[in-house]
Amino acid sequence: MKIHIPTPLRQFAAKQATVTVEAATVGEALDELTLTHPELKKHLYSEEGKLRAFVNVYLNDEDIRYLSEKENTAVTDSDSLSIIPSIAGGSVVLSQ
């Protein structure tokens, strides 16, 4: 399956916009991605191994956080994963 890498993370994925992996589940796909490109790991996961709050991973058009099987969701070669850091901000000062 294909994993689409966003512009800021390509420097940690041999400058590729798309990485192809062989995997049976979402979790396996992400594992293979970070195994092949270990530098990506700290940008995607916290020290506790959780996906960072500002990193969104979509299986086709669905946020993997909301899939019933989450990382265990089965995938096929025709599926694609998109990694997309969040975009937000504003003129207000955050209260925390």
Binding site: T7, P8, Q11, S86, I87, G89, G90, S91, V92, L94
Partner: peptide
Amino acid sequence: RWSPTDFNEAHWLGCSY
């Protein structure tokens, strides 16, 4: 000008805001 909120929530390195 960018605000602390803009900075805290900026994650796209190498991109223009």
